[in-house]
Nucleic acid binder design. Structure first.
Lengths: 201, 201
DNA sequence: CCAGTTCTTGACTGATCAGTCAAGTCGAGT
DNA sequence: ACTCGACTTGACTGATCAGTCAAGAACTGG
């Protein structure tokens, strides 16, 4: 019933693209509306505030873009070491793809916004924490599997999963700062060395 | 000659404090002026723009607060492993101190602003890159020393230094996101494990 | 075809933004 | 003691900010 519209989806996509490529604070509601081809009145019909839009855009990005990739990367049928390798490769591939199509290594959108807004918006902070927690959980499960089958030298899977995740965030940040996706090639090397697993093809 | 003033220093300190605790974009020139007790006209007497102030504040922060600590932490007379331990401890100590006095784990100011403004201001990006490079250089020298005297298992000191630095940035970000300085305790453990050096007191 | 609901439109608010400026104040060097 | 350059002051600009609103347009279910 009522009048159908795709404005909501267009706003979510535009918000993600702009915030990811720039920053939360530097992107205005007007910017998002222009990019989405939607008038501001419509914006506020769908979202009560810019903050709400950002939270929704993150949730949408996870469900639509990240979850499917992670399900494939961390599929239980794969050997644990291969899952970790696929994870590193997926990060490299995504950042390189964005670099080639948009001219900038964008880094991790959750980390960027979390770093920018963590002390300023409790809602955004919690959302980012939630998103990153999901990634860490997948890593932890993988490390536990690798520990069990002896393919990895891991003492404390929970701590090591957080360590790997921190390393990935840090290297993504380096790549963004130097605007060079090739920096991310080191992620795979360093991670495998860290797990004392022999490096595969 | 002319009229003496400490407005410049007060502006640099206020800018660092506000930007570090919040973000670059969320801090206005007016905010900085109020915090420094300086009128806006004086601000623009000393700095041509907000961007210039930020760059100067970073340089000042490095020279006044960080350089002296790093000189002590990475002093060549110390055993390399001890230098690394002192580096981890210094990071923990600084973040914890800010947490206790201001209520928030602030993270690394260079990383936060670099992440926020890297794609938006080439000058800020370059400044942050410069600051972080200096830290990586100290690490690299230490790893080379540790490699030479056999106290560390390091193959490629340059790559490993970048890796350690990325790990520190990542864990600082986790600590900021969870607003819990104790997260940073894992830095020392993970770093020492990564260098395959036995953990000291 | 009509009634009810959803969505769109464009003009509007008041606050805040970075940055400007001219006139005034102060003090150090002579 | 006076002058000249360095600093201060407060009022100002025009742009942009997030968010509001009332009126109308378009679709659907009955």
């Amino acid at each position: 019933m009522g009048r159908p519209s795709d404005a909501r989806d267009k706003l979510l996509q535009a918000a993600l693209d702009l915030i990811w490529a720039n920053s939360y604070g530097s992107v205005s509601v007007d910017d998002i509306c222009v990019a989405a081809g939607v008038k501001k009145g419509s914006f506020y019909h769908f979202f009560p505030s810019k903050e709400d839009l950002a939270v929704a855009a993150f949730e949408e990005h996870w469900a639509r873009d990240i979850e499917p990739i992670l399900d494939r990367v961390f599929h239980p049928d794969r050997p644990p070491v291969e899952r970790i390798e696929a994870w590193c490769d997926a990060i490299y591939a995504e950042q390189k793809e964005r670099f080639q199509t948009r001219g900038h290594v964008p880094g991790c959108p959750f980390a960027s916004v979390g770093s920018e807004m963590g002390t300023l918006s409790e809602r955004l902070r919690r959302k980012v924490e939630d998103m990153l927690e999901r990634g860490i959980f997948q890593l932890e499960r993988t490390l536990r599997d690798g520990q069990r089958d002896g393919s990895m030298a891991v003492v404390d899977p929970a701590a090591k999963a957080r360590c790997l995740h921190a390393l990935a965030m840090g290297i993504m940040f380096q790549a963004k700062l130097e605007n060079d996706p090739e920096v991310l090639r080191s992620l795979r090397t360093q991670v495998l060395e860290l797990l004392q697993a022999p490096q595969g093809a």
